[in-house]
């Protein structure tokens, strides 16, 4: 089971806050999980798109393992 979280405009575009995915095979690239989640709407997402795995910055090419939490979000604006 992989937990997927979406934030800010990514959440709005995909209409998805938190979702659990059963991956047939792991590890998978974060980009593969995003493709499964977003389908054709992937083209509507902001670029660059940021990725975090288990609450640490990662990238779309990072590997996601069973039990991981992967998050997709736009560039950040803290402070």
């Amino acid at each position: 089971m992989i937990t997927v979280r979406c934030f800010a405009v990514v959440r709005e575009i995909l209409g998805c806050d938190t979702r659990s995915l059963v991956a047939a095979t792991t590890p998978q690239r974060a980009s593969d999980i995003l493709a499964a989640l977003a389908g054709a709407r992937v083209a509507d997402l902001p670029k660059p798109l940021l990725v975090a795995i288990n609450c640490e910055h990662a990238s779309l090419t990072s590997l996601v393992h069973d039990g991981d939490e992967v998050a997709f979000f736009p560039p950040v604006s803290g402070g």
């Binding site: 934030f7 800010a8 979000f73 950040v76 803290g78 402070g79």
Partner: peptide, 14 residues
């Protein structure tokens, strides 16, 4: 720290 908040901390403002 303030510079890093801008680029790394997962906040989004509307």
């Amino acid at each position: 720290i303030v510079d890093a908040l801008k680029t790394r901390a997962p906040f989004w403002k509307k």
